[in-house]
Design a binder for these strands. Structure first.
Lengths: 155, 155
DNA sequence: CACACATTAATTGCGCGCAATGTAATACCT
DNA sequence: AGGTATTACATTGCGCGCAATTAATGTGTG
């Protein structure tokens, strides 16, 4: 610390976004050994979490919850279907929409997944207050970034 | 808030990591229009930041700074070389190591990039204290995740 | 009913991240 | 010096993310 880059806005060590980016990469790496046991990737795990909670959901609604689009979700869901964890039906009222369900095997994975949050909480460390604060700051940043309102510039 | 998922550890809204992941994706999306002007991606922008600060660096050292490996960096650097922003020489003392330099064009990009940090700061909003806190919490989480020490589990 | 428009997914293409493996140059060891 | 281990980087393969485009279905309007 305290080098020539003290106030250089283009220095790596002053970049909040780089810290965010690196922490996310590290987080996904840390999930990997745990999720390997379920033969899931982290994004697949997120999809399963939503489907465990809300079976019968559409791709569109799933995408809104995860902030992902069909370009990401369609191939991912096909892979989950290939693993026979998810079924991709069609709505009878509207042939355009996919109706997503977990299979029995997918439902069984939920049991195996129950211990993962606690294992991850240990890996990241920190108090519950710190984690809650990190989450809140991320949610706030996300909300700002997703609705082009600027704070004080371009006035 | 206050639905049936109040304490469900496998509910999306209780996942710190999902907030981190979503905030990072949103952040990279927010950078895109700014970086398009420099025809850079966010990871390429990170590489340029390091090379602006430390010309002559090796791929290994670059990877240590960015927490990325040669599988990611080699093709990325080749793309920067194709754009004639970076040169990929060889060390004379050790023929294995690449010596990375920015070209004149790459150095000019630095001028154009100077306004980016401030523009992003406006997009994410929040006070400087909040941003500093977010950065510190991310750095702390990263450090924990990258050195397998657990806090209280598996003792 | 016909026709413009909107909506939902799927597809294509590209650039990461990263595990796993390969290759060439260097260091080490006796 | 000769053989082994290590190091630095490159390559391959796969799964995202996402912009852009396309296809199919549904809706609304005159």
């Amino acid at each position: 610390m305290s080098t020539k880059n003290a106030a250089n806005p283009l220095a790596l060590e002053n970049q909040v976004c780089f810290s965010l980016y690196s922490a996310t990469n590290a987080m996904i790496r840390a999930y990997r050994p745990l999720l390997d046991e379920l033969s899931l990737t982290y994004p697949q795990y997120l999809v399963m979490m939503v489907l465990w909670q809300e079976p019968g959901i559409s791709v569109k609604t799933l995408g809104e919850k995860l902030h992902l689009d069909s370009g990401t979700l369609t191939p991912l869901l096909k892979r989950l279907e290939t693993k026979e964890l998810v079924s991709r039906g069609r709505s009878e009222l509207d042939e355009r929409v996919r109706v997503l369900h977990v299979t029995d095997a997918g439902r069984q994975l939920h049991q195996q997944a129950l211990s993962i949050p606690e294992q991850m909480r240990c890996k990241v460390g920190g108090t519950l207050e710190e984690l809650a604060q990190l989450k809140q700051l991320c949610d706030h940043a996300f909300a700002m970034l997703n609705s082009g309102e600027a704070t004080s510039c371009e006035m």
